[in-house]
């Protein structure tokens, strides 16, 4: 479904990502782990088009999307959440979801004016469904900045799902969560896979990564140093070295 081929990103002299090859198959959950600064978020940002790529290409459903403008990648079926939550605090919970529902309306062939100035009943019903998914139906008219941290995380996930994506990029969704919240998130992620979504999960929290992923790729200094099932990756000496340093062996 998603294939990164020789993906490379330089920021000036900094080589943030070097020649990354990665295939994520349909309906699977791929974990992306690595120490801070290893290129995980850069990978997500390249797939979403926040940064232009230096070399290599991104294939999505067999199509080269490396040059697709950022705002069109959502209607291709790629949605994301952000490492540090980036909601629109001035807008209400409902409004945050409402704009995100625009991409599926485009897919359903709603005319331009209707999409931007009106909006269908189906879209309204779907926003209602998302509110219930996120457990925020009673707070629909609340400003997003008034939500608690956990609620904001749930809203951001719902917002990413609003576009009905095929591929979901989760950038450290468990950061700052307690065990209870992580377990809740784990259930949600597994439920999404059951629905057939493909997920790329960038995460530091091992309880989550090891619990839900089918495959894990490990980055270190912008290079992929290992890939395999959670059990294989845990046994890999290079991975242990990257995380713990040579002394720990």
């Amino acid at each position: 479904m998603l294939a990164l081929e020789g993906l490379t990103k330089h920021f000036g002299g900094v080589q943030a990502l070097q020649d990354l090859n990665l295939k994520v198959s349909k309906g699977s959950i791929m974990g992306l782990i690595g120490p801070n600064g290893s290129g995980k978020s850069t990978t997500v940002n390249l797939i979403c088009g926040v940064f232009g790529i230096t070399r290599g290409r991104i294939l999505f459903d067999g199509e080269d999307i490396s040059r697709v403008p950022t705002h069109l990648r959502l209607s291709q079926g790629i949605a994301r959440t952000f490492q540090n939550i980036r909601l629109f605090g001035q807008l209400t919970v409902w409004q945050n979801l409402w704009v995100a529902q625009n991409a599926p309306e485009q897919k359903h062939g709603e005319p331009f004016l209707r999409r931007w100035f009106g909006g269908s009943r189906r879209a309204q019903a779907q926003v209602q469904g998302l509110l219930e998914f996120a457990g925020l139906a009673h707070k629909a008219q609340e400003q997003a900045s008034n939500l608690s941290f956990g609620e904001q995380r749930r809203l951001e996930l719902a917002r990413a799902l609003a576009s009905q994506p095929k591929l979901l990029l989760l950038d450290e969704p468990a950061a700052g969560m307690n065990m209870e919240e992580i377990n809740d998130l784990k259930q949600r992620v597994l439920a999404l896979r059951a629905e057939g979504k493909t997920i790329l999960l960038v995460e530091h929290v091992m309880e989550l990564v090891m619990g839900v992923t089918d495959q894990i790729a490990v980055l270190d200094f912008g290079r992929k140093i290992a890939q395999g099932s959670p059990a294989e990756v845990q046994q890999n000496p290079q991975v242990r070295e990257a995380y713990l340093g040579t002394q720990a062996r």
Partner: peptide, 16 residues
Amino acid sequence: RMIGEDEIPAEALGVN
């Protein structure tokens, strides 16, 4: 208004 608050997520939500 979304653009006014934060352009990057606005663009990720399909806003040109």
